[in-house]
Design a protein around this nucleic acid. Sequence first.
DNA 1: TAAATTTGACCAAT
DNA 2: ATTGGTCAAATTTA
Length: 254
Amino acid sequence: MFSYIDYKAVEALLHGQGCANNLKTLLENREISSVSIQPLVNTILDSFSLALSSMNSPNPPPYHESSFQYMASHVSRRSSKKKVYGAEGLENYRDDSPTPRPDDGFSWRKYGQKTIKTSPHQRSYYRCTYAKDHNCNASKRVQKIKDNPPVYRSTYVGKHVCKAPAFAVNDDAYGSEMIQFDQVVSEPVMPQLATIDHQAIAMEDQGTDHMVHIINQDCDINDSLVDDEPFWASYFPPLPTGDLIFWDNIVTFD
DNA sequence: TAAATTTGACCAAT
DNA sequence: ATTGGTCAAATTTA
């Protein structure tokens, strides 16, 4: 007999499995590029995080304090201190994730934190560490926009003009830890390249007054996170694409 | 002790 | 007057 938590965890894992299959197809067809792979990798990682966070839900599984639960609470998406340099700038896009992405390829310095009227969670403000040195005007805001499952939204503003080397793959020194059977392995973390327009940024700032539904690509678990739909109602289509997620297709509900 | 964070003040837009 | 974004002094951390 599955509990609701089990169901959510399994659902997240199944979604991750689907995306892993997509990734496999890409790799087999040699259609490899950082742009095509990153969204898939992120979604897979998010699936794991989501499944793990389910284990920490307010309704604990029967084996309270079990070793599995302990692992789940300690291993989900730990960030690395090392830098993972991203694609050419992060201008105007946002990223929703079950965990914040403190290490998204750039070095940020926090310069503020505010309580936002429409949310119980505070919003943090960061700008590029090298803003002064390189006249870099890149900044980002991070805010938890949803609980259970958690969703942290990072909104990137401005373009990096400081050093932003290429996305590094297969560097053992990089990455966060995740469970792979009984091992812990490293992998890089990059935000999804979901470009957004200025209208989208403005709408985000209107908080809960407007419900924003994003018509997203197939393999994006975030749909189910920002949606009005219950989590379990989301539909996971069988295949394809890890292309850029364009925010031009936005529908609002008042 | 240099660098990063915290936090109330300040400011511009509405 | 409110609100969200930024500044900068105080404080903490490495």
